[in-house]
């Protein structure tokens, strides 16, 4: 498993796309921090950017890589190694490479310019967001057979989670404004990994505003550590569950 991961990392770190992604993130982070003395404002801007870019690049890059390496996967399957080790090895390889890009492009600048609890939260949720979207990429790659369909599905998932989902939630809230929807809202949040990452960052940046909400459940959710623990756990679920499904499918898949 780790052997495969190692060679995939060696392969990906030399790819131009990954280099471009690293440089893009680095450029964004540095531009934001250099152009504005206000660190908090910088973190807000970076949050806005990473909530869009990180999921997009993670899911599209991982899906593309998966399909480009289809014959390589076949070759690996012909070797004395389990399919489980192959898929997990690929996952570890791809995700550590993309995480590396995120760490260099975002975590290091944030640590240098804005080291704070908010900064750390940004790093952690960015990493988890990366992992959950790579996990989703593995799922889309294993359930589709050809590359075009796989990438199409990946893009649709990204579009759904980053834009459509919240639009629907807003619509839903407007339609049922008179009902107490606290529980429903927390459940809805858990259904979208991007929202979970966003809530984690909100809990740092906007805790003053969140505490203004009257409902007891929200008060408890935001005010105690429950919100943070819940969001982190659900992010992990979003990383593990699609991967486990992908594994289940991959074990029975004809190559």
């Amino acid at each position: 498993m780790l052997k495969i991961a190692k060679y995939i990392i060696l392969d990906i770190v030399r790819s131009k796309v990954l280099l471009a992604y690293t440089l893009l993130l680095l450029a964004i982070s540095l531009t934001i921090f250099m152009s504005d003395a206000d660190v908090t404002k910088g973190l807000v801007s970076i949050t806005t950017v990473i909530l869009i870019i990180v999921p997009l690049v993670s899911i599209v890059y991982a899906t593309t890589y998966y399909f480009n390496a289809a014959e390589f996967t076949e070759m690996l399957v012909s070797q004395p190694i389990s399919r489980r080790a192959i898929l997990l090895g690929k996952f570890i390889g791809i995700s550590s490479s993309i995480l590396l890009a995120f760490i260099i492009g975002v975590c290091i600048p944030v640590a240098l310019f804005a080291f704070s609890l908010t900064g750390i939260t940004l790093m952690v949720s960015g990493c988890l967001l990366t992992l959950s979207f790579i996990s989703l990429a593995f799922l889309t790659s294993t359930i589709t057979r050809d590359k075009a369909k796989g990438i199409g599905l990946a893009l649709m998932l990204w579009f759904y989670f980053s834009i459509i989902f919240d639009g629907l939630v807003l619509l839903f809230l407007t339609l049922f404004a008179d009902y107490p929807l606290e529980k429903v809202m927390i459940v809805l949040t858990a259904l979208n990994p991007i929202d979970l990452a966003r809530i984690l960052i909100l809990l740092q940046l906007d805790i003053s505003a969140l505490m203004g909400y009257t409902g007891a459940l929200y008060q408890q959710f935001f005010g105690s550590g429950i919100g943070i623990v819940f969001s982190l756990l659900m992010q992990l679920v979003w990383t593990l569950v699609p991967l486990l499904f992908a594994l289940k499918i991959f074990k029975k898949k004809d190559l």
Partner: peptide, 16 residues
């Protein structure tokens, strides 16, 4: 102001 529950959507893409 009208619908306090939508505080959960703060900083989302759609709100921005």
């Amino acid at each position: 102001e009208q619908n306090p529950q939508s505080v959960m959507l703060m900083r989302s893409f759609i709100v921005n």
